[in-house]
Computed example of a mutant assay.
Amino acid sequence: MTLFLTVLSGPALASVSQETGRRHHLITWGASADRLGEGVADRAYRLVVRTSAGGDNLRIRLSNAFGDRPVTFDSVYAGLRKSGAELVRGSNKRLTFDGARSVTVPAGQTVYSDPLPGRLAAESDLVISVHSPDAAGPATGHGMAMATSYITEGDHTADESATSWTTRTSSWYYLDAVTVRTSASTGAVVAMGDSITDGWQSSTDLNRRWPDYLSRRLRASSATDVEGVANEGISGNKVLADGAGQSALNRLDRDVLSHPGVRTVLLFEGINDIKAHTGVTSQDLIDGYREIIKRSHDAGLCVVGATVGPYKGWYEWDAAGEAVRQEVNAFIRTSGEFDGVADFDRALRSPYDPERMLPFLDNGDHLHPNDKGMQAMADAVDLADLSCSTT
């Protein structure tokens, strides 16, 4: 397979403005941004991500959303992984920004690279290598990647060997989206959620989060033209309150509505609001869901609601929280306000005690599914719902 056939000339915006109605840019990978420690000058990151949809003209989005000062990236490359931090020989190509090799991202902002001509296959292990000469202050990234990436001091972004990339990390730094150009009839779904969507307790480096299983189902199916999947889960995230990342309400624009080619939001959040014992009622959560639905509909997107899974046996479970969960799930299933329903509760619960997860699907903490549970969730999604239309 050949990746990135030629070197780019010309800025991203010019390329996008010349697109015809037959093709468009589509998100093929995403990860929610959050504050991630302190930036370090003259450090490079080799970030390994798994794409969903295939296409050409790859672009990446660099994020300084949580920075308090500008950060410069003076060398950025994209390639294919061979194994570990080693790349497929000849695949590593420099990315540019408005035709320049260097870009400065203002505090609180994001920047897209120019498109890189050449085709990127679906389900690729894509490697983005970035170096910053001046990073300092709050760094932006995604803390719980459930995948191994690599760090080195100095600029080794052009290297295809793994020699200099000796430090491992389980986080993604500064990168929050990858897009490709594909048929305009092809869409994407954004999975918006918390630690379960983020993949906690799934197998590291094996891409067994439920959005990964969903991506593989979509690739094998002719029932829908949705192929892109972006995982916008943050461990501990809530619908209503900031804390573990900005709340779903406060990050909706950046993590969902700003991405190209998105057709549907698959919303699976609420358990952290419920079990936190802060007095959140079912009506509070329903009001939050309604705001997400309205804002997504206003942007032309559909919203599939996923029921909140069982958690009896988790240390924060109590009867009052369970009552809220049941009321919220009744709304998701029966209100008709969502464009579709993914009944994750039904997929995960025990037939003998529906307040508990089926032990076969439980990783052992009674809240987070294991790999089999992740697959059961993905299998519970009606793929036809992801092709819905608000018109």
Results as ranks from 00 to 15, higher is better:
2 T>C: 02
9 S>Q: 13
11 P>S: 15
14 A>L: 13
17 S>K: 13
17 S>L: 15
31 A>K: 10
35 R>S: 14
39 G>R: 06
41 A>G: 13
44 A>V: 12
45 Y>E: 09
75 S>L: 04
75 S>M: 06
80 L>P: 00
80 L>S: 01
85 A>M: 05
86 E>A: 15
88 V>C: 04
105 V>T: 04
106 P>T: 12
108 G>L: 07
111 V>C: 08
116 L>S: 02
123 E>F: 03
128 I>V: 15
130 V>D: 01
140 T>C: 07
152 T>A: 13
154 G>A: 04
171 S>H: 09
178 V>A: 01
178 V>T: 06
182 T>I: 05
183 S>E: 12
196 I>P: 00
199 G>M: 01
204 T>L: 12
210 W>C: 06
219 R>I: 08
220 A>K: 12
228 G>L: 02
228 G>S: 12
236 G>T: 11
245 G>C: 08
269 E>M: 08
271 I>M: 14
271 I>G: 06
273 D>V: 00
278 T>N: 13
289 Y>I: 03
290 R>F: 02
302 C>I: 05
308 V>C: 04
311 Y>C: 13
316 E>P: 11
317 W>P: 10
317 W>Q: 10
318 D>T: 12
322 E>Y: 03
333 R>K: 06
335 S>K: 09
342 A>Y: 03
344 F>E: 03
347 A>I: 09
347 A>Y: 01
349 R>C: 12
350 S>H: 01
350 S>L: 04
351 P>I: 04
354 P>F: 07
370 N>E: 08
379 D>R: 14
381 V>D: 02
